[in-house]
Design a protein around this nucleic acid. Structure first.
Length: 301
DNA sequence: AAAAGATCCAACCGCTATTGC
DNA sequence: CGCAATAGCGGTTGGATCTTT
């Protein structure tokens, strides 16, 4: 990685480096201690001088990054929760790779963490589906399959109580697999706030994710997945009269295996292991969804 | 048990925006 | 206004760790 070797002392090329050598690479406990102590007394800011005054042979940039991404007392550790995943998907669909902006709505999470989550989990699925993560197809898949699925799982985990998150539904001009459903389809999860209203107050929004029962009761809003050997590759998503059709498709399949990092459907109980408390947080799709989508994406390639 | 491959994430970089002189 | 320093952002990388073979 040419000039990017870490864990060494070397001449750094950034604009703030002069003749001084800076330490790069992983931080030691002692360095962390120095930084924390200094900030506790003097506060943040003026990172270059802070680094010098704290006795750290680090660039200001490096100190800032270490503090913001790791040492800050309000940093939240641990796995990204389902609610957070849902929020990330939602906010990313609205703002794209505006990580810091997205991070502002996930208290304790850093832009770096969210970015890493996106790259490792979400892009992984896009790769598996052999489609571009920025494609409309993939975005629609997130919106119409993954996000509703996350809502279900949140519901399951919460025991059917109303879940309050800071997410909102966006009602897009729906287009799934290249087919425009703008007049027939609205998202499979709903919100009290309209997208318009949300957009207008995007800096401070709060809405509710409807319970699953709302979802399944929300007829006229779903799309049905059908596969009756229609030779037209554009056929598979059809607006349908009942969202239950959609959920029946995606939830009732009894004979599938789950791909990759997920569990298998329990054929005795028809339960999804992902709902049984195991941390399968990146198991966004079940295998049937996955295989179906793979077919779809390959069809439309 | 060991090797190979996959995944995760801390930390780096370059670039742009903002601030202060 | 112009310049330099600083702050912040998004993209990328390498090594540690985990998983699979």
């Amino acid at each position: 990685m040419d000039g990017k070797k870490r864990g060494c002392i070397g001449n750094v090329q950034s604009e703030e480096d002069h003749e001084m050598d800076f330490i790069r690479g992983p931080w030691t406990v002692e360095e962390d201690f120095k930084l924390i102590n200094y900030i506790a007394i003097h506060g943040e800011g003026r990172w270059n001088s802070l680094a010098r005054c704290a006795g750290l042979k680090r660039t200001g940039k490096s100190c800032r990054l270490r503090w913001l991404n790791y040492l800050r007392p309000d940093i939240r550790r641990g796995n990204i929760t389902l609610e957070e995943q849902l929020l990330i998907l939602e906010l990313h669909s609205r703002w794209g790779n505006r990580w810091s902006k997205i991070a502002q709505h996930l208290p304790g999470r850093t832009d770096n963490e969210i970015k890493n989550y996106w790259r490792t989990r979400v892009q992984k699925h896009a790769k598996q589906l052999k489609c571009d993560v920025n494609s409309k197809q993939f975005k629609d898949t997130m919106r119409y399959l993954w996000m509703p699925r996350l809502v279900e799982r949140i519901q399951a985990a919460a025991g059917s109580t109303t879940i309050t998150t800071t997410t909102t539904a966006v009602v897009p001009s729906a287009s799934v697999m290249g087919k425009d459903f703008s007049t027939q389809v609205t998202p499979s999860y709903t919100s009290e706030n309209s997208s318009t209203a949300t957009a207008a107050s995007s800096e401070s929004f709060e809405a509710q994710v409807s319970p699953v029962s709302d979802l399944t009761n929300c007829c006229n809003n779903g799309f049905q997945v059908t596969n009756n050997n229609n030779p037209n590759p554009d056929y598979n998503f059809q607006a349908c009269s009942s969202q239950v059709d959609y959920y029946e498709h995606s939830l009732s399949a009894a004979n599938y295996y789950n791909h990759g990092d997920g569990g298998c459907l329990d054929l005795q109980t028809n339960n999804y292991p992902m709902l049984d408390g195991a941390d399968l947080s990146d198991n966004l799709l079940n295998a049937e969804d996955f295989l179906f989508l793979q077919q779809q994406f390959n069809f439309n390639m």
